[in-house]
Amino acid sequence: MIVYLARRILLAISVLLATIVLVFGLFFTGPAKDAVAYQLCGTHCTNARVKTINQGLGLNEPVVKQFGDYVKGIVVGRDITNNGSFVGHCDAPCLGWSYIQQESATTMIKQALPVTLAIVFGSAVIFIPGGLILGVLSGRTRGSPLDRIIVGVSQVIGNVPYYAVALIFNLYLIFDWHILPGTQYVPLTQNAGKWFIGFLGIWIIYGLFNSTYYVRFVRAFMINTLSADYVRTARSKGISERRVVWVHALRATFAPYLTLIGLDIGTSLSGAIFTEQIFGVQGLGLLAIRSLGQSDLPVISATVLVGAAFIVVANLIVDLLYVVVDPTVKLS
């Protein structure tokens, strides 16, 4: 067990290190290496000017040296200089420096991250149990009116692009009918109540939309499991049907459900662009989009690195939880 833990953590760390190398390689070498200079000199760029800027920022140094600086920045932070003069300090973990914003990418991410975390984990509180419970209900009553309603609604909602659903729900539920409170971002530390109310609409709409997908997954899995031999064995013990479904059949659903959810959460933590845009809150998604628009490569690379880190961590957590829900995993 401890060995398994250690091996998984070791694996996660090595994947993270590889990601850092990869991100650096993609964004600071090759065709991307002059991006910062082009960004700074805009339309007046000449090769000579690019060269001068690069020289001033130390971007013409050997790749190995630059990578060393990059890693050093991540670990202990670093000073940003132009032609030897101090521009700013990039605190650890320094994921990059935006020359346009004159700000550390880490600071920008720190501002956006609480929004994204709140969106994803808040809605997870709705869609994790929602998908599971509705999926089980639907699966065990296959063909019944209840099943048809659940499947029908989730099909309709799930098959419309998310931004359309979010927009329509936002317009009707929040603006027109005032069923849900208006959305805004108030930092949790500032006012917990306003923070909660500000996110409530997002959680419900984003959570419900996500549930539709998990409902269909759990339902399909449940239908399969309910005809499994071991469920038949459970039934032939003379235990109640409720116990057969909610203990025996559901137990088998946990492991794959957990995997699916864990990886999805990991992915969505790199930003929920549509949600942030439609509901007017600034998360990682909008940060990434804005940086893309400005070709602010250091910030883009930072968001990529953070997104990758979330996926690695999510994978790790899924792996570790897996040991709890699936005892067969220890050996394989």
């Binding site: 071991y230 038949r232 064995t233 032939s236 003379g238 088998a252």
Partner: peptide, 22 residues
Amino acid sequence: QRIRSTTAAMIFQDPQSSLHPL
């Protein structure tokens, strides 16, 4: 529910799939 396992019990062909794997 009352008679299962007490009056009549059943064992199945494939012991691999007939026991709950988890």
